[in-house]
Deep mutational scan, measured.
Amino acid sequence: MALNTPQITPTKKITVRAIGEELPRGDYQRCPQCDMLFSLPEINSHQSAYCPRCQAKIRDGRDWSLTRLAAMAFTMLLLMPFAWGEPLLHIWLLGIRIDANVMQGIWQMTKQGDAITGSMVFFCVIGAPLILVTSIAYLWFGNRLGMNLRPVLLMLERLKEWVMLDIYLVGIGVASIKVQDYAHIQAGVGLFSFVALVILTTVTLSHLNVEELWERFYPQRPATRRDEKLRVCLGCHFTGYPDQRGRCPRCHIPLRLRRRHSLQKCWAALLASIVLLLPANLLPISIIYLNGGRQEDTILSGIMSLASSNIAVAGIVFIASILVPFTKVIVMFTLLLSIHFKCQQGLRTRILLLRMVTWIGRWSMLDLFVISLTMSLINRDQILAFTMGPAAFYFGAAVILTILAVEWLDSRLLWDAHESGNARFDD
């Protein structure tokens, strides 16, 4: 018995066209964080690309023209004298008006014999932002004059995390709450300039795509075929072959399989920071003279006294001054041990922890910024005066060393310790 099946006739004509040209192939790229070699397709503007294995951002879609970056830099340069030299806060102490600005706080630190601690604050609040705007201006002028731009481009990517104007702005709020127990506070004209400078700096850093600047100024022929001998440069993120001198053909720094002496430098910085954190938390970090009496505060006791007036601000200072430094030390110690013992479990967790400490590390400088600003506000000789204690130097040095330890660690070593050939990683 035959089955009668109805015929289905399409209502619209289906047209099949042959592909007349070869589909576009992607360029081969190595991930600078996990060293995976993959094919990167062509990316349009405002599109980002991520590593298929570790999800690290390979290409950032946010990109401004150099002219727009230069305009932002010149605007920031105009704001800087007002943000640093004009009063941020006014207080009335014992019937006398006192003005506080950024430069005055750094000068008070240096004047009291601790120039190293003052230079830490100076670099993060004044030096690094000033280098940022002058570097962008150098790129703008240098591109037109045919100057060598490689050193500036190499420095810009590392400079971003040292620009800490946003953290200093939080420190202004913390210092205001600490001082309000002794005097009446009012915002100064410099505060508005400083807030504007923070906003412009944040926007500029978020749109400063150094890798795209490398592509514009020093374009290189990408690798179009897969080759395990391809290496990625950690300076400019170019994937290719080393030249005859073993250097990256684009930025001219040595092109090595792994960062040289990464573990040794990381261990040295980490152990030194552990040693410095002990006096930083045991010795007094601030000293207040009130009517001839002397009151010393460690980091913890200062947080407890701050909690009596504002528990939320005390929580912020606790996280930045105690929780973050010790968390960074514990995480980095764990990561280094996992590399030495070739741990194969929990790779995803370790990668996330490394990215976390990379982002939060700079916030530990908050305590030094609060001390710097408070020193310029309260300084009335023996009637009422505020000065920093010996722990300030140890704390600042420990924070900087932990930042350097994270920067010096080559994250690809975590993958080397893991089993080879993993296309995915999980716990």
Results as ranks from 00 to 15, higher is better:
1 M>P: 00
2 A>M: 11
3 L>I: 11
4 N>G: 14
10 P>M: 11
10 P>A: 11
15 T>H: 09
15 T>W: 12
17 R>Y: 10
19 I>W: 10
21 E>V: 11
24 P>N: 11
24 P>W: 12
24 P>K: 07
25 R>F: 10
25 R>E: 13
27 D>T: 12
35 D>Y: 07
37 L>Y: 12
37 L>D: 10
39 S>A: 11
39 S>L: 13
40 L>H: 07
40 L>K: 13
42 E>T: 08
42 E>Y: 05
42 E>W: 08
44 N>R: 09
44 N>S: 11
54 C>M: 00
57 K>T: 12
58 I>P: 01
59 R>I: 08
61 G>D: 15
62 R>S: 13
64 W>Y: 11
64 W>H: 11
70 A>S: 14
74 F>C: 12
75 T>I: 09
77 L>M: 09
78 L>Y: 02
78 L>N: 12
79 L>F: 15
82 F>Y: 15
89 L>P: 00
90 H>L: 07
91 I>P: 01
92 W>Q: 04
93 L>C: 02
93 L>Y: 05
94 L>V: 05
94 L>M: 05
100 A>T: 11
102 V>R: 01
104 Q>M: 13
105 G>A: 05
106 I>W: 01
109 M>K: 02
114 D>V: 04
114 D>F: 13
116 I>R: 06
117 T>F: 02
117 T>M: 02
119 S>I: 02
121 V>A: 07
122 F>T: 13
123 F>W: 03
125 V>G: 06
128 A>H: 02
129 P>W: 03
130 L>E: 02
132 L>F: 12
132 L>I: 03
132 L>S: 06
134 T>Q: 08
134 T>E: 03
136 I>S: 04
141 F>E: 01
143 N>S: 15
146 G>I: 01
146 G>C: 04
146 G>P: 05
148 N>F: 03
151 P>V: 03
151 P>Q: 01
156 L>N: 04
162 W>V: 01
162 W>P: 01
165 L>P: 12
165 L>Q: 14
167 I>K: 10
170 V>H: 08
173 G>M: 07
181 D>V: 01
182 Y>A: 08
184 H>Q: 12
187 A>K: 15
189 V>M: 13
190 G>K: 04
190 G>Q: 02
193 S>D: 04
194 F>L: 12
196 A>Y: 15
199 I>E: 03
200 L>A: 06
201 T>W: 02
202 T>D: 14
203 V>S: 12
203 V>K: 06
206 S>A: 15
207 H>F: 15
208 L>S: 15
208 L>V: 14
208 L>K: 06
209 N>K: 08
210 V>P: 14
213 L>E: 04
214 W>R: 02
214 W>K: 01
217 F>V: 06
223 A>L: 12
224 T>W: 08
227 D>A: 07
229 K>E: 09
231 R>L: 06
233 C>I: 00
236 C>R: 02
237 H>A: 07
239 T>N: 06
244 Q>W: 15
246 G>A: 05
246 G>L: 05
248 C>G: 00
249 P>E: 05
250 R>W: 03
251 C>N: 00
254 P>A: 02
260 R>N: 13
260 R>I: 04
265 K>A: 05
265 K>C: 03
265 K>M: 05
266 C>A: 04
266 C>W: 01
269 A>H: 02
270 L>N: 10
270 L>H: 08
271 L>A: 06
271 L>H: 03
276 L>G: 10
278 L>M: 12
279 P>Q: 08
280 A>I: 02
281 N>Y: 04
282 L>D: 04
283 L>I: 09
283 L>V: 08
285 I>V: 10
286 S>P: 01
287 I>P: 00
289 Y>D: 01
290 L>V: 13
291 N>K: 13
291 N>Q: 06
291 N>H: 14
295 Q>H: 14
295 Q>G: 07
296 E>C: 14
299 I>W: 15
303 I>C: 11
304 M>D: 15
304 M>E: 11
304 M>G: 08
305 S>P: 03
306 L>E: 00
309 S>R: 04
311 I>Q: 11
312 A>V: 11
324 V>E: 04
324 V>M: 15
325 P>W: 07
326 F>Q: 06
326 F>P: 04
326 F>V: 12
326 F>I: 08
327 T>G: 14
329 V>T: 09
330 I>D: 01
330 I>L: 14
331 V>L: 14
333 F>V: 11
335 L>T: 12
337 L>R: 09
337 L>E: 07
338 S>E: 07
341 F>E: 06
341 F>R: 12
346 G>S: 09
347 L>M: 10
351 I>T: 08
352 L>P: 07
357 V>C: 06
357 V>P: 04
358 T>Q: 11
366 L>Y: 00
371 I>V: 09
373 L>G: 05
374 T>V: 14
378 I>L: 08
379 N>C: 07
380 R>G: 01
380 R>S: 01
382 Q>Y: 12
383 I>F: 13
383 I>A: 02
383 I>L: 12
389 G>W: 00
390 P>S: 09
390 P>H: 08
391 A>M: 01
392 A>R: 00
394 Y>F: 10
394 Y>D: 06
395 F>E: 00
399 V>C: 13
404 L>I: 15
405 A>R: 00
407 E>G: 11
408 W>Q: 03
416 D>Y: 11
417 A>R: 06
420 S>R: 11
420 S>Q: 11
421 G>T: 14
421 G>L: 14
421 G>S: 14
422 N>R: 13
